[in-house]
Simulated scan of single mutants.
Amino acid sequence: MKLSTRATVIAGVLLLGLTGCVPTTPTPTPTTTSSTTPTPTLTSTPSADPEEAEVTAAVVVMTASTLSVFGTDGSTLASVTYEMDGAAAAAQIAEALDEEPVVTPVPGDVESPCPPATSYEFGGLQLRSPGSLWATASYEVIVTAASTSGGIGIETLAGQQIGATQSSFQTAIGEFMVLYEDPNRIGFDVLNPEAHEWDRIGAYAEFSGGTLVYLAAPNRLGFIGSCA
């Protein structure tokens, strides 16, 4: 059978219509996801100030002119001269050492060169007010041990302590004078070296068996006696 031209045109139109009706799959558009990394917030923790170290007594130093207590930081916690009242001096030393002394009355005779006195004792450190027969100030300091009852070291010139050998002590302190032609008794740290030897005032040291056993100050070195 022969198709007419009209039929051919209609068929073509139908074919085009069918082709246009075929659904097309749309190409997806990519979605860009923005990933933002958060910046961390730094939290500043204030550092605490270090606690101030407590300053305590480190050493007691006796010379012919002063008695001093130095702290663990090198500061001076107390420094008393021998002209001040003995009880007041003992109170200052007690506060610096954080230690109460043993207070003992010393018998004597008001009419004699050895009047009644009071002893303020911190173990190996003693303040006697008034001092012994040869003392030249309001009170006298006597040292008989290397430390106080509280364990604080006691020194004199050049860091010398009770228990030092006589040779090392004499080398360390420098100039000294032998008293009464007795090598076991010497005077040192003389405050008035220009005075006659009987009138010189300084610190006194006594040895036994080549070992330092006793210190006292201030003393009249030309006359070392006892009220006992």
Rank of each mutant, 00 (worst) to 15 (best):
M1W: 11
L3H: 02
T5R: 06
R6Y: 12
R6I: 12
A7Y: 08
A7I: 07
G12H: 03
L14E: 11
L18K: 00
L18H: 01
C21M: 12
P23Q: 05
T24L: 15
T24K: 15
P26T: 04
T29Q: 13
S35I: 14
T37W: 15
P38M: 06
T39C: 01
L42Q: 15
T43S: 10
P46M: 00
S47R: 11
P50D: 08
E52R: 13
A53R: 09
E54L: 12
E54S: 12
V55P: 13
A58E: 11
V61I: 10
T66N: 13
V69K: 02
F70A: 04
S75T: 13
L77C: 10
S79P: 08
Y82K: 07
G86L: 09
A87S: 11
A87G: 06
A89G: 13
A90W: 13
A91R: 14
Q92Y: 03
Q92I: 00
E95A: 10
E95N: 10
D98C: 00
E100Y: 06
V102R: 12
V103M: 10
P105C: 13
V106L: 15
D109V: 13
E111K: 15
P113I: 06
A117F: 05
E121C: 04
F122A: 04
G124N: 09
L125R: 05
R128E: 05
G131Q: 07
G131W: 05
W134T: 15
A135R: 04
T136K: 10
E140G: 07
E140S: 09
T144N: 07
T144D: 08
A145P: 03
A146L: 07
T148F: 08
S149K: 12
G150M: 02
G151C: 00
G151P: 05
I152K: 00
G153S: 15
L157W: 03
A158N: 11
Q160T: 04
Q161V: 15
I162G: 01
G163R: 01
S167M: 04
S167H: 06
F169V: 02
Q170H: 02
A172K: 04
F176G: 00
M177V: 14
V178K: 02
N184V: 11
G187T: 14
F188R: 01
N192M: 01
N192D: 11
A195G: 02
W198A: 14
I201N: 10
Y204M: 01
E206I: 00
S208F: 11
G210K: 09
Y214H: 12
Y214N: 12
L215C: 10
A217Q: 09
A217M: 03
P218S: 14
N219I: 12
N219M: 14
R220S: 06
L221Q: 09
L221D: 10
I224Y: 00
S226Y: 06
